[in-house]
Amino acid sequence: MSEQHVQEQHEQEHHIVSPVTYMIIFGALLVGTALTVLASYFDLGEWHIAPGLTLFWNPVVALAIATTKMMLVVLFFMHVKYSPRLTKLTVAAGFIMFLVLVGMTLTDYFTRAWGRW
């Protein structure tokens, strides 16, 4: 009961993120940009999962780095880390919904001619 009260109080006060945090995130984003450009200059190979199904590592790495950068921006620049739980839930629900819609659309398109190539 009291714990919940503390949580509520915590959510009510406005958290001010310090410039030091912003600078660290800024630095991390620049490092991420350098890494992803660097990675694009190397052929990172591919993984033949099954006949006709190949996973190229270059796009996987590029998207993984982009997603890491996105998380840093969302959590710190957009203050989600310091936001009320309602905001956290909303943002998470939005991303999951996005992944479901894109994922289901892609599974449809990518499997229409399955095994016929």
Binding site: D43, A62, L63, A66, K69, M70, V73, F77, M78
Partner: peptide, 20 residues
């Protein structure tokens, strides 16, 4: 920041992933 995030993905998908 949202517009920044969109660009992060555009950069990866349009510029980078097709070098190899």
């Amino acid at each position: 920041h949202f517009v920044d995030i969109v660009w992060i993905y555009l950069f990866a998908l349009l510029y980078l992933i097709s070098r190899h």
